[in-house]
Each structure stands twice: as C-alpha cells, then as structure tokens.
Simulated scan of single mutants.
Amino acid sequence: MLSCIGYAVGFGAFWRFPYLCMRNGGGAFLIPYFLCLIFCGMPLFFLEMVIGQFSGLGAIGVWNVCPLFKGVGWAMLVMSGLVTIYSNMILGWVLYFLGLSFTSSLPWATCNQTWNTPLCVEWNGMDPNVTATFRNTSATFSNVSAPQARHGVTPAEEFWHNSVLKISGGIERFGEFRWPLVCCLFAAWVVVFLCLFKGIKWSGKV
C-alpha cells in the first residue's frame, strides 16, 4: 500500500497543483481535472497494478507479453532513475531545513544575516500600513519607494538563493560545493538504501 501511494502521489501534488489550479481558472479547473482522473488516470493506474500483480515482473520483463513495447519498459526505468535522483536532492533540502528548524532563531526569519542584501524586506503583518523593515532601514509601507516595493525580497527567499544554494553569477561559473547539502544528500541516499537493501518486497511491509 505504501509503495502504491508513493508512486501515485509525488511532490508535484503538493507544489504544482495549487499553482496550476489558480492559473487555470481556480475551482473551474477541478472539473476537467476530476473527469480526467476518473476516466483516464484511475483506469490506467488500475491497469498498471493488475498487469504488475499478474505477471510478477519488473518494468522491462512485463513486456514479454508484447516485445514490441519493451522500449516502454526501458523508458519507464530511465524515468524512474531520473525522478529518484531529483527527488533525493529535494529530500536532502528537506533534511537541511529540518535540521535548521531546531535552532533557537530561524536563519530565514530576519534580514540581519550576512547573506542578506539591501533589497531584503521583512513584512511585519498583512496590513499595508504596518512597518516594513528593510535591511539597515525601517519605514512604513506607505513610505517605501516604488522601486523598493517592486524589488523587495523576503529573507526566506534570500536565505534560499544566497545561503542554501549560493547561486553563482552565471552558468559559466560553477560556484562551490555546498558541503552541508552534500552531507544531507548522502543522508537521503542512506535512507533510501536502508529502505531497499532487503529488496523491494520488504519495503512494502515497512
């Protein structure tokens, strides 16, 4: 059951779905979504489960029933490998943020860190008249100049870009190794290994 849920529900369900829903008509988007889910998604998912359960074979061996489509099995294998690589990178980021969330003051909460720029801005509430604190500056929202308001960056965004990823100035600059992220990525792969080292059948019992 856990293996099936893991295949059916991915990161995109939590990240992209609300964005896609808002961009494509809000609640109206749910009508074609559920129609496709009921008439396409669920039958195909059921078909895949039934064929896998009946044959007891992997993504490549199952196509012995129709060797013409064996390339589909290889494509599935390659896609699973690529998804595993980027999913583990995301898991590494999750572990990194999880570790930092146990600190007394969150590093992405304020604009007083070394990686913050003058464009960093803290919104201290939802009311447009409350104080917005820029780095080394404090001004009410109504007094913030148009360029500042347009280009203001939250401390969380600057923490992500300037501290966690340390994005370089261009693709021609490789930047540096982020050793904390390397360690978190290694820990993520260790978790995957511990889930799978006794075989895929064992992981379904966890």
Rank of each mutant, 00 (worst) to 15 (best):
A59G: 07
Y19C: 07
L2C: 04
Q148N: 14
W179K: 11
L68K: 12
G175W: 00
L44E: 10
F14K: 07
I171N: 07
Q53H: 11
L185D: 06
M89H: 05
L165Q: 06
V182M: 06
Y96W: 08
A8P: 03
A8L: 11
G81C: 06
N24L: 01
V65M: 00
A59Q: 05
W123N: 01
V50P: 02
R178V: 15
T140K: 15
S142N: 13
V191N: 13
R23H: 13
N64R: 11
W93Y: 04
S104R: 10
Y86Q: 04
N24W: 07
Q148T: 13
G170H: 06
G175D: 07
F174E: 03
M22L: 15
L194G: 05
I85G: 10
E158G: 00
F102N: 03
C36P: 02
E122R: 12
I171L: 15
K205L: 13
S138G: 07
P155E: 08
F193W: 05
A109E: 02
V153P: 02
C184I: 09
G61P: 04
W93R: 00
G71C: 14
N129P: 00
V190R: 00
F29E: 01
G170Y: 03
E172T: 09
W108T: 01
I5H: 09
G6W: 06
H161S: 09
P118D: 05
T117Q: 05
M42K: 06
M1S: 10
S104D: 15
L119C: 13
P67A: 06
L196V: 02
Y86K: 09
G92T: 04
G41Y: 00
C40K: 05
W15P: 04
